[in-house]
Design a protein around this nucleic acid. Structure first.
Lengths: 143, 143
DNA sequence: ACCGAATTACTTGACAACATGAAATATCGA
DNA sequence: TCGATATTTCATGTTGTCAAGTAATTCGGT
């Protein structure tokens, strides 16, 4: 595989680690302001985009489906999410945000200042550059 | 505060989210290969750099000191870490990696291919550019 | 210099959330 | 009907918080 990382690469890795830590901190904080845990906020954000079966939530979160049951339970007991039957398949339950849930998700998205604010430090050109570098790094091939 | 994010910024935020997710995945995976949890791996990595009192571990992890007790307990029961008295202050306990712990930490660091491998996609110039952009974003002022 | 009070470091215990894996139930598809 | 799939439940372990408790240090006043 890759040989031992050079100094520059190591520095970048370190920086990414810092970004990750900062991101998490901000995310948890934003979630906590709505009395949500990180996991709950993630699921709510996911469902705000599009209702989906439990199974798919689990795939998105990369965790076991049995875990999702509990998270959705807690969201449901707070009236942010509801389970609806899937007309096409009676085994599956579609989790969908309620009206309140959608509102909370929107507020949450807005208060997710993490990258928005620091990105203000960068010019438009730089942001575009950063975007391209990250895409390349992630192996995203722009169509 | 910052006005509603423009399209470009939103894209970059999204990308950062993806980077964060990928990073975590890789980190947990690397930790699991040594039968460690993410938190345990983080603490071990921290101590491999430099032994430190429990309180400082808590500050690094941004969690309560009482939480660190349990994590270090588990690492200690597996012989990866030991608690030593601080000669200067009998209240504090210094957590330090054992020989095995240091070896595990080194392996862990090496298997942390996340950013190393994808960064291979970028040229040296690009990596330097990325480093600078991330530093600016994080508000790091290079001396 | 001394003594008592506040502070600090760590642990313990109770409790909630998250996470996994195995087993149970219900439904689908071939 | 049989095997696969979607969800839940249960047992268990780790991470996290908070409040209370113990031990050691520091500081202020005399």
């Amino acid at each position: 595989m890759t040989p031992r990382a050079d100094h520059l690469t190591a520095e970048v890795v370190e920086l990414i680690g810092t970004v990750v830590a900062r991101y998490h901190e901000e995310y948890e904080h934003a979630a906590a302001e709505h009395s949500l845990t990180g996991a709950q906020a993630r699921v709510l954000g996911l469902l705000a985009r599009e209702p989906m079966p439990m199974r798919r939530i689990a795939r998105s979160l990369k965790c076991e489906p049995s875990n999702v049951t509990g998270i959705v339970d807690r969201l449901e007991s707070r009236g942010l999410v509801e389970r609806r039957p899937d007309p096409a398949d009676r085994r599956v339950k579609l989790a969908a945000p309620t009206e309140t849930g959608r509102a909370t998700a929107a507020q949450l998205r807005d208060s997710l200042d993490f990258a928005r604010e620091p990105l203000g430090e960068l010019s438009v050109t730089e942001r575009a550059l950063l975007k391209e570098l990250l895409q390349r790094m992630l192996g995203v091939t722009p169509e």
